[in-house]
Design a protein around this nucleic acid. Structure first.
Lengths: 217, 217
DNA sequence: ACAATAGTGTCTGTGAGACAGTATCGA
DNA sequence: TCGATACTGTCTCACAGACACTATTGT
């Protein structure tokens, strides 16, 4: 007995997260064509012949957000049958974290312009997103929260040099709760090294700039 | 300008781990046909039309190891161009953990019989595995080690009722180091509830059987 | 009584949490 | 001097690590 196997198209969907205005944001585009014309969706590209999944993700990120040299990791692969009403498409989602100062949103070819959306607002609203993209975003947001606890991904939201109050705010946003200054600094101390630079111009005590220690764990 | 997009076949490759003889083992099959004829490989199936990825994984597990109702989770999706010398195949790998008493290895249709292999021995040997399956196994083994630390996956290697010495041995094997009895029991205590049953017949003090607490975190 | 394994009590050090205090800028 | 934010000191408590001790079976 012979079976029919799938030869679906492979899409790479991108979750580009950043922090702006003290909120976690994600890059979304408004779909310019059916299905889901006019709905918000994740930016994404189809995988080309001769292109790996990682390559496609990288290309998508630079096309949609004008970014290269960015942290990204594979998130999950979505294979529900009815994800796309037209035909079967398998979506490999990628999680990407970036300092908002580096983002340059550009109108993609098949999409209207990309915009930053507040993630918590989006997930608690009843806004209808294209495909299963609401689920994907929720999954990505969970992953970020979890990895914040036991990795250094939070650093990816900041430039190379940053102050501890900035870093603490990033952690607070990602974890969704307030942290104590003194405890936070003790915990982070082994992961950073100080520069000689300080903030200046603010009407209060200046803050030292640090950078990530290239070091081990 | 038009691009050629991929319409690859989608495979699901299965990492079925278990513990036997106080060692972490994995189910492998010897390939019956080219490419890599005669090499060890992960059991796998192609995704059929109308079948989700999870469905395909479930089907593969029951075909190759005679198992249903088993813990499994998606691991990673492998999309290198030259994974398969014939044509492009995207592989979605699944991690599955199972009590070895439940495994019934059966000869698949396209494979010779499935066998349990010692994972540490395999990874430290220079045995040549089919495709990129050595990388996939190494990745899965890492994932298990990590999740052992902050989830309860270790319980999946045991039957519903188990003794604490058994459970401790599972943890020790997965983590690759010895643990102190007293500390281990204190840490596990909130996750389990005791049955009234005890081991018997051994020439030493009997051990109580416990089960997992259905409870919260 | 002994071998063998199951199970407990307790000391110690580390680190998270909580909070109060001090320091340094511009205006 | 004051408002504002940066930074530090320290107490407490929970918990992991280490290790010594007791308990219960079959032979």
């Amino acid at each position: 007995m012979q079976y029919d196997f799938e030869n679906p198209m492979i899409a790479v969907d991108l979750l580009v997260f950043t922090i702006a205005d003290d909120r976690l944001k994600i890059v979304l585009v408004e779909r310019g064509e059916d299905p889901f014309k006019g709905r918000l969706s994740l930016p994404g590209v189809f995988v080309r012949k001769g292109e790996t999944l990682d390559d496609a993700a990288q290309r998508g990120i630079s096309e949609e957000a004008g970014l290269s040299d960015i942290y990204f990791e594979q998130l999950y692969t979505w294979g529900q049958l009815d994800r796309d009403p037209r035909r079967r498409i398998i979506s490999v989602s990628y999680l990407s974290l970036v300092d908002c100062a580096r983002i340059h949103l550009s109108a993609g070819e098949r999409t209207s312009s990309a915009v930053l959306y507040d993630v918590e607002d989006l997930l608690s609203s009843d806004e209808c997103l294209a495909f299963d993209h609401r689920d994907i975003i929720a999954y990505g947001r969970e992953r970020i929260k979890n990895k914040t606890e036991y990795t250094r991904i939070a650093f990816e939201f900041l430039p190379e040099e940053f102050t501890l109050p900035q870093l603490q705010r990033v952690y607070e946003i990602l974890l969704g709760r307030q942290l104590y200054k003194a405890n936070f600094r003790r915990k982070i101390a082994p992961l950073i090294e100080d520069t000689q630079k300080m903030t200046s111009g603010d009407a209060h005590r200046p803050s030292r700039y640090y950078r990530q220690k290239p070091d081990a764990e």
